[in-house]
Amino acid sequence: MKAGARPGAEAIALKGRFAASKWLLARRFVQLSILALFLLGPWFGIWIVKGNLNASLTLDVLPLTDPYVLLQTLLSGHVPELTAITGALIVLVFYLLVGGRVYCAWVCPVNMVTDGAQWLRERLGITGASRLSRSARYWILGATLFLAAVTGSVAWELVNPVSMLHRGLFFGMGLGWLIVLAVFLLDLLVSRRAWCGHLCPVGAFYSLLGRYSLVRVRADRREQCDDCMDCFAVCPEQQVIRPALKGAEKGIGPVILSPNCTNCGRCIDVCARDVFRFGSRFNNRADFDERTHHSPGVEVLR
């Protein structure tokens, strides 16, 4: 990244504005489409999807349930009906395939709020971070599960900004705007990516699924990297890139295996040298050859 230039400027110059934002645009399209699907009912009476992210029913046949909220229900001592369990299993399998924190980058409505805060933060040149721990979210996740068990109620749902925003858009916001505003201001003023990257237990829950999920960002052409730092500048979870991108000498493979990578694909967009691409978690040998897409020796086994 040249001094003073915005991250991705080089990629835009090289690939064109569209190609250098295609995953960002795809992501916004998916996020807005999901919101639109939920809004068609309450606004226009076209009921394709009912409910909200906690539990929904699509076309009167497909139940989907947030496994995190269902886990809290279980811990509170309630055995749910089969519909909710089926819905949670479908969601679990889906995110195990596409990546746990795909929920955060492609589905969660708060992502647009915090991305907005981050954009403004950069524009205003706000720097300096309070020392929030990246692991705080797991403590908070544990605390919410503990609270469910101790209070016998889904206590986290009283304050959860994620479901509050999503539910509020279809069922009435009330004072929920204040909580969304608080998250925005937190990310804008207190710490870079404070909510999604440090505190949110929903993301923490989905990241645990991400430990085993299939679809990954891969730094397959990492030898092309010219250390421009653009990917690092745009990444909401900066710590996940380095092992894969710079690990060749240490014998680390090119797949970004950190469960906290949200598969947002922004690094793919902004890289002028096309180091990154979406792929699977397999073929993660340090000596992976990008041109054949196989590790040496794999052919022999066929």
């Binding site: 009912g41 009921w47 009912k50 409910g51 909200n52 906690n54 539990a55 929904s56 029913l57 349930t65 947030d66 909220v69 269902l70 229900t73 509170s76 001592g77 309630h78 749910p80 909710a84 469910a148 016998g152 109620s153 889904v154 749902e157 479901s163 539910r167 279809f170 069922f171």
Partner: peptide, 20 residues
């Protein structure tokens, strides 16, 4: 609805009852 204390643990706040 279950008794209030149980209800607060069992309800996932999805609003499907409201919709129907």
């Amino acid at each position: 609805a279950l008794a209030e204390a149980d209800f607060l643990g069992a309800c996932v706040r999805c609003g499907l009852c409201v919709r129907d």
